[in-house]
C-alpha cells in the first residue's frame, strides 16, 4: 500500500498534518477553557466560532473596517455570547451534565442560523488577518503566512492559557472551582463570576479560532462543526483539562489525517479518515480507562 514514499512527500504530508492539527488545536482551546471551570463540554464553541467569524467577515469585507478592528469585534462578540452561555450554565446546575452539553449545542445551532441570515447565500471565505498573500515553500508544500500566523498564535495562546491556569492566583481559583465548586464557594470564591468569566474567555477563544480557521475552509457551519469534533477528540486525551495535551492531541489527529490521507498511504476514497478515527478512538479509550483508575484511587 505504501507507494514510493520520498522524504519530500513525507515532509509535505507532515506539514499539511501539522497545519490541519493547528486548526483543531485552535478550536480545542475554547473547549478546554470552558470545561476547565465547570466540567461541561461546550458544544457552543462551533457556533461561537462561526458567529465570531461572521462578525469579522461583515466588519472587514462588508463595512470595510480595518482587519484588526474587525478581529477585535469578532472576538468581543464571541466573548459576549460565551458569557451569556456561561450565565445560562449557572441556571442549570441541577441539570445532568450531558443535558447541559446538548443545551450548548442548541446555542450553536442558533448561532449557525443567525450567521446564515447575516452572510450572503454563497460560500464565503473571510480575508486572513495575516494577509491573503505571501508565504514560502517548505519541501514540496507551500506554506502561507496565514498558516504560520495561525500556528504561532495557537502556540502563544496555548502557552498563555497554560500559564494563567498553572501559575497565577486566578488559575488557582479556577482549578479549585473545577475540583470542588461547593468547597470553593464556602471559601468565599465567587463561583458564578468565574464561570461566566471563563466561559466568556472560551467564547473569545472560539471566535478567534473561527476567524483564523474560516479563511482556510470557508465559513461553513458544518465544516466548523466537524473541526470542533476532531478538536474534541484530540483534547479528550488530556481529559479536556490540559491546554498543552489538547494542543498535542489535536496536532496528532491532524498528523494522522495528513499522513494517512495525504498521499502516502492510499486507502481508497472515504477511508482516509479511518486512521484518524482509529487514533482518536484509541485516545478516548485510553483516557477513559485512565480516568476510571484515577477516580477509583481518589475515592
Amino acid at each position: 500500500m505504501v507507494i514510493g514514499v520520498t522524504a519530500a512527500v513525507f515532509e509535505s504530508a507532515v506539514i499539511i498534518g501539522i497545519f490541519t492539527g493547528t486548526i483543531y488545536a485552535m478550536m480545542a482551546l475554547g473547549i478546554v477553557a470552558s470545561f476547565r471551570i465547570n466540567r461541561v463540554v461546550n458544544l457552543g464553541i462551533p457556533g461561537l466560532a462561526v458567529f465570531g467569524a461572521t462578525v469579522y467577515f461583515e466588519m472587514s469585507n462588508v463595512w470595510g473596517a480595518p482587519v484588526l478592528v474587525a478581529l477585535l469585534g469578532g472576538v468581543a462578540v464571541g466573548a459576549l455570547f460565551g458569557a451569556i452561555l456561561g450565565l445560562c450554565n449557572l441556571k442549570m446546575t441541577a441539570w445532568p451534565r450531558g443535558f447541559v452539553m446538548i443545551f450548548t449545542l442548541t446555542a450553536s445551532l442558533f448561532l449557525f442560523g443567525w450567521s446564515d441570515k447575516i452572510l450572503p447565500p454563497i460560500q464565503v471565505s473571510p480575508a486572513s488577518p495575516f494577509g491573503d498573500s505571501g508565504g514560502f515553500k517548505v519541501a514540496l508544500t507551500y506554506v502561507s503566512n496565514h498558516q504560520i500566523g495561525t500556528f504561532i498564535t495557537c502556540i502563544l495562546v496555548t502557552l498563555l492559557m497554560g500559564f494563567v491556569v498553572s501559575k497565577t492566583r486566578i488559575g488557582i481559583y479556577v482549578r479549585a472551582i473545577y475540583d470542588d465548586g461547593d468547597s470553593a464557594a464556602t471559601l468565599g470564591i465567587p463561583l458564578g463570576y468565574f464561570v461566566v468569566g471563563v466561559w466568556a474567555v472560551a467564547g473569545a477563544l472560539a471566535a478567534l479560532a473561527g476567524i483564523l480557521v474560516s479563511p482556510r475552509v470557508t465559513l461553513d457551519p458544518y465544516l466548523i462543526l466537524f473541526v470542533t469534533i476532531w478538536a474534541l477528540a484530540g483534547s479528550i486525551l488530556g481529559g479536556l483539562e490540559s491546554f498543552g495535551i489538547a494542543f498535542v492531541g489535536s496536532i496528532l489527529v491532524g498528523l494522522s489525517q495528513g499522513i494517512l490521507g495525504g498521499g502516502i498511504i492510499h486507502l481508497g476514497p472515504g477511508l482516509e479518515n479511518l486512521g484518524a478515527i482509529a487514533v482518536v478512538a484509541i485516545a478516548v479509550f485510553y483516557a477513559g480507562v485512565k480516568r476510571r483508575d484515577l477516580a477509583h484511587i481518589q475515592t
Binding site: 461547593d182 464557594a185 464556602t186 471559601l187 470564591i189 463561583l191 458564578g192
Partner: peptide
C-alpha cells in the same frame, strides 16, 4: 449564596 457567606466568614 455560599460565597458571600464565605466572605462574611462562615466557612
Amino acid at each position: 449564596p455560599a460565597y458571600r457567606r464565605g466572605q462574611a466568614g462562615v466557612v
